[in-house]
């Protein structure tokens, strides 16, 4: 369904670009205000669109994020790569591939790389939780399916994620793991309805990866106290105030 809809959308834009000033067929919100020009998108954007090829997974380039800093004011860099969807999401997307610049998600891990501690030690992942292993992680997440460590983590290499079809994903590709169950969310994420965009609405699309917001072991967002606006100081009172929002 989705490829068909997107092709419809593109037809709409082609019609819009070719129709020029003819705004009669457009929906009201698509009509341009007086004085606006109907210049079609510039050639660079088109070139980018046509150059989208089904690519391999892996970093293409690492570029800094301009205009947005991460938690604590630290600068971010992102790996730009083609998000090729395996198994689950490919049914959702069909033949569409999306070029998404992902924020490097493994940078925020506190106990990464794993080989910093696990050097030369064989890691046994059994179908039960070991008491003295990673006590700071209390997994509550995929408990409905009776999961354990080896459900998501590769036994032979703890720095890889294990997909259900036997493939392996790196820590920078968590969406491949999440997409196995949450395919609707990943479809929305790839399209633009889910996930936070970081680097401006124009040009490069930089979005957050799944673990940037959701702790994989406890993915629900925690409640917070909302921001409270500064209170009005009623010094000279009798002047009428704009009603408080």
């Amino acid at each position: 369904m989705i490829p068909i809809r997107i092709s419809k959308t593109m037809l709409c834009l082609a019609a819009l670009a070719s129709a020029g000033c003819n705004q009669g067929n457009l929906r009201p919100w698509e009509r341009l205000p007086p004085g606006a020009t109907t210049t079609p998108l510039d050639s660079t954007t088109k070139a980018q669109n046509t150059s989208r090829q089904p690519g391999v997974l892996g970093a293409v380039e690492t570029v800094p994020v301009v205009g947005w800093t991460g938690p604590g004011g630290e600068s971010l860099s992102v790996d730009r790569r083609t998000a090729a969807m395996s198994a689950g999401p490919s049914r959702q997307f069909g033949s569409i591939t999306l070029t998404i610049a992902l924020r490097d998600s493994s940078a925020g891990l506190t106990q990464y790389p794993c080989t910093a501690c696990h050097q030369g030690r064989k890691i046994v992942m059994e179908n039960k939780r070991i008491k003295d292993a990673h006590q700071n992680i209390q997994p509550v997440h995929p408990k409905q399916i009776g999961s354990h460590c080896a459900t998501c983590h590769a036994s032979e290499n703890v720095e890889l994620l294990a997909l259900q079809d036997g493939q392996r994903a790196t820590m920078d590709q968590p969406y491949r793991l999440c997409a196995q169950c949450h395919f609707a969310q990943v479809a929305a994420w790839a399209g633009g309805a889910h996930g936070k965009r970081l680097d401006g609405w124009q040009g490069r699309r930089v979005v957050m990866a799944c673990p940037n917001c959701h702790d994989p072991h406890s993915p629900a967002l925690r409640p917070r106290i909302p921001f409270r606006a500064p209170q009005i100081e009623r010094i000279h009172s009798p002047i009428p105030w704009s009603p408080a929002p």
Partner: peptide, 13 residues
């Protein structure tokens, strides 16, 4: 007016 924009994807899907 950009068919590849996120807002257009939201409106379409």
């Amino acid at each position: 007016l950009d068919p590849d924009s996120e807002i257009r994807w939201v409106l379409a899907h």
